[in-house]
Computed example of a mutant assay.
Amino acid sequence: MKNLNKLLQIRNLKKVYGSGQNSTHALRGMNLDVIPGEFLGIMGPSGSGKTTLLNCVATMIKPTSGEIILDEMDITKLWGDELSNYRGNKIGYLFQEFELLDNLTSEENIILPLSIHNESRKKMDMKLKRIAEQLDIVDILKKFPSQLSGGQKQRVAASRALITNPAIVLADEPTGSLDSKNGRILMEKLSYINKEEGSSILMVTHDANAASYCSRILFIQDGLVFHELRREIPEESQEKFYERIIDIMGQLGGGSKNVLTFNKG
């Protein structure tokens, strides 16, 4: 299946854990597309299949059936060197808990994906300089993770995810371990890179503030897409989009407990 207008196509994706009476259907025939340069958010209640979906795209887990087509390749059929190349070059992964190596400096953590694929030192330095400036972490490149704040760690992790210029960045609750200020800073940086560099981002989040930076949001429930929201750019403000997100979260069963104060600062 080829479609040059779609970067990522997910077709009838199913994931079943266990078997028989003990089976759990995490994904029940998921269908969605991501277009090049899109910032797509995935939201839904706990257990709805959000992280399972992301991990299938990342090839951390194998779906039970269905297709995941990125850049015209069905990644569910990749093995060996092709799978390694996909993980190293086609995707970048931004974890909630940073997943930085404590014995490496920020600089060494960021360039690790390039080192693994034997990139030249000159190219690594050029890419490092560019991404460090974009995420405002030039002054902490020689520091170890233990010397960094949570917000700094996540920006280092984001730099590592972006430095290979992947086809798509997968972000799993990127603001989940950050306070509101650092969460806002991170989302502003990701939004800037999405708009200025055309980086495609697929983000799973519970955070309505974080989701308001997206251009489109898919709400999923019981392993299927439940609803879609598109931000009307440039007419619709981020705050208005946030309010619409909150409305849908309430319909999904979150009620007032999911309502967060919108941070204008």
Rank of each mutant, 00 (worst) to 15 (best):
R28G: 03
E236K: 09
V259M: 11
M1G: 11
F95T: 12
Q134A: 15
I111G: 01
M126H: 13
L4N: 12
L141I: 08
M30K: 00
G150P: 05
K77E: 13
N55Q: 15
L186T: 03
N258F: 14
I140A: 04
R231I: 02
K77L: 14
E119N: 10
G44P: 05
Y93E: 01
N103Q: 12
E173Q: 07
F98Q: 00
R230S: 08
S180A: 11
N85T: 14
I61A: 01
L148H: 01
Y192I: 06
L128Y: 03
N31R: 04
T205A: 05
Y93N: 02
Q96W: 08
L94P: 02
E133P: 03
N22V: 08
S191K: 12
S84N: 15
E97C: 13
D33V: 12
N194V: 09
G176P: 02
T175P: 02
G37D: 07
E108A: 09
P234L: 08
E82Y: 11
T64I: 05
L40P: 02
K153S: 12
S191M: 08
P234C: 11
L13Y: 00
Q221D: 15
R130Y: 11
S212Q: 11
G80W: 10
E228D: 13
S149L: 11
D222K: 09
N12I: 02
N165E: 15
S19E: 13
F262E: 08
I68H: 01
